[in-house]
Every structure is written in C-alpha cells, then in structure tokens.
Design a protein around this nucleic acid. Structure first.
Length: 557
RNA sequence: GCGCCCGUAGCUCAGUGGAUAGAGCAUCUGGCUUCGAACCAGAGGGUCGGGGGUUCGAAUCCCUCCGGGCGUGCCA
C-alpha cells in the first residue's frame, strides 16, 4: 500500500542485482531513501542513492545511477526511470498503475491509509492530565489536540493504543482545592469563612459550593471541617471531572481510561514500587526523607520520593509509582506522555525512572508542547489558574469551534511557540484552511448527490477512461496517505496530517475545475462513471484523514 | 549561571542532509448560462537571526554569538 516503500524495495533489489552481476562494487549497508521531488520534471519520486554510494564505490554518481536504473526489472509500476545530474534517480509512476489504485483504495474503504508500522506494539498515550480543580483553560487545548491526534495516528499506523488521563486526585493541589471548597461552602451558608492561603479563588468553586450546599443543607456544616470535606470531596471531584470530560468530549477527545493517582496509594502500588527501588539499591534515606538515587543513573540530582515533613509521597513519588505501573504491571512496549513546556524539567528524572525500571530510556517518550500565547489584536490575553480562569476551553470552543481548534493546533509542530490570535481566528474563520478542507468533502458529497439524482450508476465504471492529467495528479495525491501516516507515526508528528489534508483538498479542487464529473452529454457516460469512482476514492482518503485528525466530516456546509 | 525549545515572506506557520526554500492570511490582476465561487488561475514579497565549520551537497548536523520562551522546589 505504501508506494514509497514499494519503490524503495524495487531500487534496493536493483542495487543488489547490479552488485551481484558485478556492474557495481559492494557498498555496505545503504538505506534507500525515496523522496518526493519538489519539481514535477524530476518525476513523482526520486532517490539520491547514487550520490550516497559514490564515495564507498569510488565511482561517479551518474554512472552508479545508470547501473542501478538498468538493473530495475520490468514492472507495471513505473512509466519512466532516468538519471539526472548530479546523481539522482528519478521515477515516474505509470498511468495504469495509478488508475488501478482507484479500485485498491475503494476496496480498502475505511481501512485506507492504515499501515503496519506499529506491528501491534502496545503503546500508551497519556495527555492533558490536568489537576481536577476546575474547568480546563485554553492553555490545555494544545496538549489535548496533540495527544488525541497522535493516538489516532498511531492507531492508524498499526499500534495498539491506549489513551489515558492521569487524575491527580491526591496531593497538595487537591488539599488546596478541598480547603477552598470548604470555605466556599461555608460562605454559601452565610458563614464568615475566609479563603485559605493558598486557595483557588476562581468562580468555579463558588458555583460548585453553592450546588453542594443546596444538596446537603446546614446539617453537615455543623460538623468538624475534616468531616465536611470528607463528605463533600468525592462529589466535588466527580463533578469537576465531569466538567473536564464534557469539554474534552466537545473537543473530540476520548479516553480509554481515567487513572486515579490516589489508587496508587490505596492499592499498595506505591509501596511495591518503592520496594522495587530499594531492592535494586536506588533508594536512600537522608535528611528525614526517602530519595531516589537518580545520580546513579546519570542525573545531576537525586529526587525526593517521600517527604520529610508530612511523610507522604511527592508528585515525583507518585509519578514514579505510576510509571512502575505502566511499565512493569501493564507492560506497555512504549509510553508516551504529552506535557506542557512547564514540565520539561521533569523529563530527565522520569527517563532515569525508566532506566531504574529496567527499560530503555527511549521506551518513555515525552512530547513537550511549547506554551501558546493568546492575544486579541494587539492585546495579550493572560490566564492563570491560581488567579482565576480568564479563558476556558469551553469559551474557546464557543468562539472558534472544535474543528478549527483541532486543525490549528494540530497543524503546528509541538516545538513551535505558537501565537493564537483570537481576533484572527474569528475574523478569518471563513477563510480558514480547515473549512477549505471540509468544503472539499462537502463538494464531493454534492457531486455524488447530483449523480444519484440522475440515477447515474457508476459501480461498474471503467477506470481506463481516466486520461486527464488532473485525474492522475489527484490519484498521486490520494495514494500519498499511507506514506504520510507511516512517516508521521514514525516521527510521532501528527502535524503532517493537516498539511496533507490541505494538499488533497487542493488537488481535488484543481481536478474539479478542469474535469466535469457528472456530464450532461450522454456520450460522456463512461468518463463520468470513471470520474465518479475517482471522486469516491478521494472522498475515502479525505474522510480518513479527517477522522484521524479527530475532525467532523461534513456532508454539506 | 546552567539545561531544554524556538528564530524561515508583512502576519501565522510547514519544510525527511539533496535539485530553483513552500502554504495560508494580507495586497494586486483575471475567471461563474452546466456537477457547490467556502472555488480556480496568476503576480509581487526571502541575507532561512549573525558568523564559522563538517559535507559532493546545509534552513536541516556541529561550534559560537545575538534575540525570545520555559525550566532549574521535599509545587504539581
């Protein structure tokens, strides 16, 4: 299914054949790189293999290229193979091969674009995992989109994927949340209870406290603070998680599991993890605390797992136990965490954790997405959870829409410090690339509706009637999808998908401009039928790409 | 100070060591009596932050400097 892979194998076998026949000297291992040239005159694909081999073979790249090209066996795939200075081999696909792809795509249907890169490897993608202390704010949108897009992508690439949200329902922030909640409930009951310091001062807890007070009444509040909190905390947590779930759901984000931090303590997983470290000599008691000796694993500093003052685990401590669970209990082949830039200082010690657990550091991949700055025109929009939420995910979705949000965040590399101009997002909404891509799909559907209206049956159409250059261009774009999925999944870079989607939409629109699909002339029927097959293949590829991106697929706009 | 990330067209961003560095937006010019003009065709716009180096070949790899962001807790 992957054209580039097929060509790579073809060239590779040609090289081997040329070496076997003695026309080329041995060269050691050389990976055959297949690329898509920028200029059409350089073919559909090319390889710079001769240039790479020139030194080892002590021959001119042009000569090497000619020998390899000559050794490529007759095949149905290629129309033309030629060598171009300074030493490229250019490859052009045959029209028959391209036409034949239409049927291949249509029979693959919703499977089209899937590849076997992952070979069933079990991968976990953990993302967002924001403290459940209030609604998600805009800063969390990027990680949510990247994480879910990546998970979809890996699934398409043949990995067995689990999407997980780590619920920080233990620890200091939860304590602050509960203390604030208590104060707000007392306030709701008319008591003069001051906010704790620190506190979550946002409106969210005021509303939540009022709801809880309305449900429980005054009786509960006469009891000691700890009892009140114990009685209210579970409902408060559940209610907050529900809010987060709903926001993420609207953003097109689904999870397979919500993993409770507290459960690590209650189930004894934390203690087992500590014992594991102790047994391997990575644990030390110092200054009243228990330390992970990460310096033995190449880190600059050791890290505290259990605090000296309250005796409980640190955030790092439970995160260690959490990864103990991921790697040694659930045995994922690979664990991917999507974190914001403010967590990158945590990466090094978690890599050390992976090593301590007996895994390769690369089994743990941390994708850091740089912070997003939001602005409205010239005015910067600041937000901070501790000062109260200014702009929530919900508000962003109301303003811009889930599809546009996903497309915008997904199309940028996580490394880029992006700037999100809300004015621009609103103003340009009609000209946003996201609608261009979706419009292409709606247009295909419209063509198909027109064909149905005319009772034009094309199931038995003959693709040999496809002869226009734009038809060939469209097919070439469609069949790139499996290569794109492979490439993006290998590099864990979902941002290639929106760019491909745009290319595909562009290709479709150019085809549409030049090629009338549903013709009024009865003599054109065979061409119409063939083009309807082609259009349906384009629909399959476009829909598949949108699905992986987690976007909706409009029938009409 | 040290560590990580970034610097590409007016703006927002792509770019796998390869051939003449791309797209969207913005600006300008053209194109609808037939399947959707939320479209298509074209134009202008670049010291790829600066300087060295490696290489047949560097936006891409290495060094260095400049600029920006984020870290550098027994916070999460």
């Amino acid at each position: 299914m992957r054209t580039a892979e097929t060509l790579s194998e073809l060239v590779s076998s040609a090289l081997a054949a040329a070496q076997e026949s003695g026309s080329l000297p041995p060269s050691g291992d050389a990976a055959v790189n297949i690329e898509k040239p920028q200029l059409a005159e350089h073919g559909d694909f090319s390889t710079s293999l001769p240039l790479r081999l020139a030194r080892a073979m002590r021959m001119s790249p042009m000569k090497i290229g000619e020998m390899i090209a000559e050794a490529i066996p007759d095949n149905d795939l290629l129309k033309r193979v030629w060598v171009a200075a300074p030493g490229f081999i250019n490859l052009e696909l045959s029209d028959d091969f391209l036409r034949g792809q239409v049927a291949t795509i249509l029979s693959a249907g919703e499977e089209f674009g899937n590849v076997d890169t992952g070979a069933g490897q079990r991968v976990q993608v953990e993302f967002v995992s924001v403290n459940p202390t209030g609604p998600l704010h805009v800063g969390h949108t990027r990680g949510a989109v990247i994480g879910s897009g990546l998970a979809n992508l890996l699934e398409a690439a043949g990995y067995e994927v689990q999407r997980e949200y780590y619920v920080n329902d233990a620890g200091n922030q939860m304590q602050v949340f509960n203390d604030t909640l208590y104060a707000r409930v007392m306030q709701a009951a008319g008591h003069d209870e001051p906010l704790p310091d620190p506190a979550y001062p946002g409106e969210y807890l005021v509303d939540l406290a009022e709801r809880l007070y309305a449900r429980h009444g005054d009786a509960l509040l006469s009891r000691p603070k700890a009892e009140v909190i114990a009685a209210l905390a579970p409902a408060a947590l559940e209610s907050t998680l529900e809010l987060i779930r709903d926001d993420l759901d609207e953003l097109g984000v689904r999870y397979d599991r919500w993993f409770s931090e507290k459960s690590l303590i209650e189930d004894g997983q934390f203690d087992r993890a500590i014992k594991f470290l102790e047994a391997r000599g990575y644990l030390a008691d110092r200054e009243g605390a228990r330390w992970f000796l990460s310096t033995r694993l190449g880190e600059e500093k050791d890290n505290v797992l259990i605090r000296s003052d309250k005796g409980g685990p640190t955030y790092f401590g439970t995160d260690f136990a959490y990864h103990y669970d991921k790697f040694l209990v659930r045995e994922f082949d690979r664990v991917i965490n999507v974190w914001g830039a403010d967590h990158h200082g945590h990466v090094g010690r978690m890599k050390a954790v992976a090593r301590a657990l007996g895994r390769e550091p690369d089994d743990l991949v941390v994708i850091i997405n740089q912070i997003v700055s939001f602005k409205e025109g010239d005015r910067a929009v600041r937000f901070s959870k501790r000062k109260g939420v200014i702009l929530t995910v919900r508000e962003l979705l109301d303003e811009v829409g889930a599809d546009a949000c996903r497309y915008i965040f997904l199309s940028r590399s996580p490394d880029s410090q992006m700037e999100f101009d809300l004015d621009l997002a609103r103003r340009q909404s009609a000209d946003n690339p996201v609608y261009y891509v979706q419009y292409a799909h709606a247009r295909i559907r419209s063509i198909q509706r027109e064909a149905a209206r005319r009772d034009l049956d094309y199931a038995a159409g003959d693709v040999s009637n496809l002869r226009h250059p734009m038809e060939m261009e469209l097919i070439k774009t469609i069949i790139r999808l499996p290569d794109i999925v492979h490439h993006a999944a290998t590099r864990l870079e979902p941002h290639h998908l929106p760019h491909y989607a745009y290319d595909l939409a562009k290709s479709l629109q150019r085809f549409y401009e030049e090629c009338r699909v549903v013709s009024n002339d009865p003599g054109d029927l065979p061409v119409s039928q063939a083009r309807l097959l082609l259009v349906d293949a384009a629909r399959v590829a476009l829909a598949r790409t949108l699905v992986i991106m987690g976007m909706t697929i409009p029938e009409r706009m």
